[in-house]
């Protein structure tokens, strides 16, 4: 399945509530995540998505 711009945008959108509630979920397990940790995790996710889009996205050689 190609990673289109639209799919990438939707994945980014869905990642925002997950990132925001990450500390709450971690709190259920007595893990205190600082805000910076959440920011780093979200940044890493976006970076991964960017790489995947480069490899398998529209216009990439793999997708073609």
């Amino acid at each position: 399945m190609k990673l289109t711009k639209a799919r990438a945008l939707v994945l980014i959108a869905i990642s925002v509530p997950v990132a925001i509630e990450l500390r709450t979920v971690a709190g259920f397990f007595n893990v205190e995540l600082p805000l910076i940790a959440v920011a780093v995790i979200e940044f890493l996710f976006l970076a991964l998505l960017f790489v995947l889009y480069g490899l398998y996205g529209e216009g990439s050689e793999s997708a073609a």
Binding site: K5, A6, L9, V10, I12, A13, V16, P17, I20, E21
Partner: peptide
């Protein structure tokens, strides 16, 4: 359509921040 797509995504993300 791309502006429309960006608009609905922006609404979703904005509302996630504000409503949460």
């Amino acid at each position: 359509r791309p502006i429309g797509l960006l608009q609905v995504i922006m609404w979703f993300v904005g509302m996630v921040f504000m409503s949460n």
